[in-house]
């Protein structure tokens, strides 16, 4: 911490179960240009108000725990530097489009369920190599799905998604990107099963090309592209099914 007495105001959303009105607490935190918003939260928790509740762990942008709304935008607090905001106040709120559990902690159950629903595991086909041999996969084949494998499940994309805010059933950007991660993997044979899940809900068709999900992704994943690919493939599969009913391919 610098000896400089320079400080920056943080306005933080507070919530405890049963509370009926929106509440914010304001804290003045020492300004340090090396600090991220998470450092400021830790300072508050350690030295000002131990009751402030939030999730965090790796503090290096890979565990996906510390997503919050910072001045209205979904961000990882470990990657949002105070210097981006200084000297203006920083408003910290829980991720939008999720039910709040406590202060800055949101309910993740629904997201975890959605992730699970797209069958995000490798579904074997007919040609599995023996137990002592790897699948051959060229760098070009790896490149096809690699970016979709980079999702850290931080759920910032759900907070940014206009469809997710209106249609809670929408399986959502990260889960669809994960489905595509396996659909595009040369080792996988489960695409048909996953498309059925993706298309079971109307939500996906409401997704426009806004691409907010891809804009906020801290890892450069492009869920919007995954959704558009899924729509296209689904439409093709549908057209095909009209000609050749399932089980008769």
């Amino acid at each position: 911490m610098t000896v400089d007495t320079d400080r920056i105001p943080l306005k933080i959303s507070r919530y405890t179960e049963g509370q009926t009105t929106d509440g914010y607490d304001e804290y003045m935190v020492p300004y340090n240009e090396d600090w991220v918003v998470l450092d400021a939260l830790n300072y508050i928790k350690d030295y000002v108000d131990g009751s402030l509740a939030y999730r965090w762990s790796c503090r290096m942008g890979v565990c996906g725990s510390c997503g919050m709304m910072i001045n209205g935008k979904p961000k990882l607090t470990c990657s949002a530097f105070l210097s981006e905001y200084y000297p203006d106040p920083i408003v910290v709120e829980p991720l939008a489009n999720f039910r709040v559990e406590r202060d800055l902690i949101v309910d993740m159950d629904d997201f975890i369920h959605k992730l699970d629903s797209v069958k995000p595991w490798l579904i074997e086909g007919d040609s599995v190599p023996p137990a002592n041999r790897e699948y051959k996969q060229t760098p070009a084949q790896l490149a096809k799905y690699k970016q979709y494998s980079m999702c850290i499940n931080c759920t910032l994309c759900y907070s940014a998604c206009p469809v997710a805010s209106n249609e809670p059933e929408f399986v959502g950007p990260a889960a669809i990107a994960l489905a595509q991660r396996y659909n595009l993997d040369s080792r996988d044979s489960g695409k048909e099963q996953r498309l059925d899940v993706l298309m079971a809900n109307e939500g996906v068709w409401d997704c426009t090309f806004v691409g907010e999900c891809s804009n906020v992704c801290p890892k450069g994943v492009d869920p919007a592209a995954a959704i558009q690919q899924a729509k296209l493939e689904s439409a093709l599969a549908y057209a095909k099914s009209l000609i050749m009913p399932k089980g008769n391919k």
Partner: peptide, 9 residues
């Protein structure tokens, strides 16, 4: 690898 880990190749 059979479970899908995206090893560099």
């Amino acid at each position: 690898e059979h479970w899908g880990c995206p090893w560099s190749r």
